[in-house]
Amino acid sequence: MAVLLIAEHNNKELKPFTLNAATAASQIDAEVHAVIIGQNSTDAAKQLSELPVIKKVLSVEAAHYENFTAENYSPIIIKLAKNYSHIICSANTFGKNLMPRIAAHLDTSQVSDIIKVISPDTFLRPIYAGNAFATIKSKDEKKCVTIRPTSFDPCESTGGSASIEKIDASEEFSNTKFIKREEIKSDRPELGTARIVVSGGRGMQSGDNFKLITEIADKLGAAIGASRAAVDAGYISNDHQVGQTGKVVVPDLYIAIGISGAIQHLAGMKESKVIVAINKDGEAPIFSVADYGLEADLFEALPQFMEELNKLNTIQK
């Protein structure tokens, strides 16, 4: 049986993590269908049909799908579920909110936040905030699985031409009413979800010196992080803190500047895809987890770094 992917979108276009979830779905079974539920979401549906891994798109439109509430989404997915072995979506706040509601209706024990597909019924997932990994085998006939988006590469976004099938909407759930969504409009991405994080530690020596980091973060479209030591020293506010008692981040690129790499800090960033460390102490523990280490005085290295970035024609955002 095929796998059903639940697309996440904003009615105009797909949310990027849908591409990561599609990759995970295709690792379970080659026959991946995707359902897109929304209002005036035909452009997003078309975009979905162009993902080469998607073999068929099911599109549902109704006014009550405009705001993606789980209560409205779940009946239609439950109806579709009889044709599928797996239901897949991202383990972000959208998928976390939605999937258990579906799983409970299907009387299925959900497997949350997987980081690896071992076989169609066996998955790897972190537990205890990533301090242990569990290998889980599902014995349920239908499997509801949410995937950690950063653990799967996004699939190709063009070249496919899946058919788009319109299906009927289900009834509205009247006890939940959407009021508003306030997207945080900031030039800087949120620390928890940023693709790139630039972090400073006590090596920055003062709050003023953090402007060296801000400059680079602006250039890269990155969030700004900090070690606990830098926060305790008063260089930056504690909502920037990465680590055991701060935020756990898993960006594509983590740049640690003047951070020695206390284990509490490593606990918060060691799952990042690529780690860069800039530190003048060549023995600093941060180098033991860095993909690229630069042993240098940060006050010399950072202006050079900025210069090199300025030389680049393009920078991915």
Binding site: Q244, I263, P285
Partner: peptide, 12 residues
């Protein structure tokens, strides 16, 4: 970091 450890990993 096999037999001997830094203070912060110990405190952890």
């Amino acid at each position: 970091n096999v037999i001997t450890f830094d203070k912060t990993s110990s405190v952890y």
